[in-house]
Simulated scan of single mutants.
Amino acid sequence: MFNFLRFPKILPMLAGAIALFSVTGIVPEVVRADSSLATGNYRIAQSSIEGLEGLGAIEGVEALQQVMEKMLKTLAETSYAQGETALEEQDFQQAMNHFNEAIERYSEYAEAYVGRGAARAQLGDQSGAVSDLQTAASLFQKQGNTEAYQQIQQVLQGR
């Protein structure tokens, strides 16, 4: 079971989500999403949230999606930090595992693709590293981070 107490940033978001669940009356789908999130089934949780739209709770669904995205991003940040630590310790396989986890939790996390690319390069997977850097560059560009985008482009051109 997921221990929310280990991640204090999540508690205020969770409190807001619970209030939202009560107000909108969409508890069954929310419980399914919450239990899926707690067991690590992020895609099922997301599909449960998206399924709420059919229940006529559009405003509630949008707010819930924002809460869900924040929660997943917070969890992804934790995995990313663990990946960074593993990179520093030169445990590249473990770093890659943590970055994979971060990406699974929040697929728009450009920095996690950079980290995974670095781990892949150290493990000899050059094509995987290039692919991750290209994905990161695309995400940075989409997010308006032109400095990070340009830095990655320079790395890709210098390979």
Rank of each mutant, 00 (worst) to 15 (best):
E88H: 09
A81S: 11
E77A: 12
L139P: 04
R116I: 11
G128I: 15
T78N: 07
A136E: 01
F2A: 04
A15L: 13
Q154R: 15
G16R: 06
A148T: 09
G16I: 05
R6V: 10
V130H: 02
K73Y: 11
L87I: 12
A110Y: 03
Q157Y: 07
A137C: 08
M68V: 06
Q134F: 05
Q150D: 10
Q141Y: 11
I152K: 00
Q154T: 15
E62D: 14
L72C: 08
F99Q: 02
V27K: 12
G40K: 04
Y113Q: 06
L133W: 12
V27L: 13
E89P: 04
G60W: 03
A33I: 01
G40S: 07
E59V: 13
T78L: 06
S47V: 13
M13A: 06
Y42D: 03
V155C: 07
V30I: 11
I26G: 05
G60Q: 05
L64R: 00
I49K: 01
P8Q: 05
E50L: 15
K9S: 08
E53V: 12
T39V: 10
A129R: 01
A121Y: 06
K9M: 08
Q82Y: 09
F92Q: 03
Q151S: 15
N145L: 09
Y113M: 10
F92S: 05
F4K: 03
A137K: 04
Y109W: 12
M68W: 03
A63C: 06
N100Y: 08
E88S: 13
R6K: 15
Q141A: 14
L156W: 05
E53T: 09
E50G: 04
V114P: 01
Q94K: 11
K9R: 12
L72D: 00
F2S: 00
E29S: 12
G124Q: 07
V67C: 02
A33G: 06
M96H: 04
Y80Q: 02
Q151F: 07
G60L: 07
S138A: 14
R159K: 09
G56C: 10
E89N: 10
V114D: 00
L156D: 06
A137R: 04
R105K: 14
E101R: 09
G117K: 01
A33K: 00
A118I: 11
V30C: 13
F4R: 02
F4I: 09
L156T: 10
M96D: 02
R120D: 02
L156N: 08
Q122S: 15
T74V: 08
I10M: 07
A118P: 00
Q82N: 13
N100A: 12
I18V: 15
Q66V: 14
L20K: 00
